[in-house]
Amino acid sequence: MSAVFAIVRRELLSYFVTPVAYVFMVIFLVLAGLLTFYAGDFYDRGLADLQPFFDIHPWLYLVLVPAISMPMWSEERSSGTIELLLSLPVTIAQAMIGKFVAAWLFIGFSLMLTFPIWITVNYLGDPDNGVIFAGYLGSWLMAGCFLAIGACMSAATRSQIVAFILTAAVCFLLLLAGQPQVLDFFQDALPAKMLGALAQLSITRHAAAIARGVLDLRDVTYFVASIVAWLAAGVALVDLKRTR
């Protein structure tokens, strides 16, 4: 356990000694603010809630999370430090968990820094803060899901750019799968049950519930299960590369 904490610490440290953390936070906060006000109709809706804010999160994460996850394993591999890491007395799963938790905490921290928008909405109206809290929690879970996909993709390649593109592509597909246009397109080709499964598999559907502030057990299960599955796949990939 102490080994996992050591890895979490090291990863967090490496975000903050390089410009990565600061660039990420600034871009994330600026984009989250701008998009909420301009694309999300924050004022014109005349409602005191943060739905427009949470609505744009999947699209923000689509671009920004792969940038955080891409070096996780790729950089270790290209710089050779993976040899050092894997010869330390930690299992691959522990290393994976350490790296994931560090990145997840960092995104959680960035998410917390969006608090001015919460203050704004409380200043302007009388929102349901429980709903907002649930929205934040759900958004963080969703970010975790994106991160886990990124961790797996980063384990698959030594090139950070390839890891970035693969992660963004997979996340995009998962976002797209639930869009009405895509579902309509497959309506005639697929039986209704498979269509339903496709929609359930999509991040969009679960994200939409979260943006409304409904933290349903099914959505939570979806994200937690996705995180576990993608991380496990990443561990398997790292292990597979030891044998090849």
Partner: peptide, 9 residues
């Protein structure tokens, strides 16, 4: 390890 890899940052 060969080349003594370590975290440069």
């Amino acid at each position: 390890p060969e080349g003594a890899p370590s975290y440069g940052e």
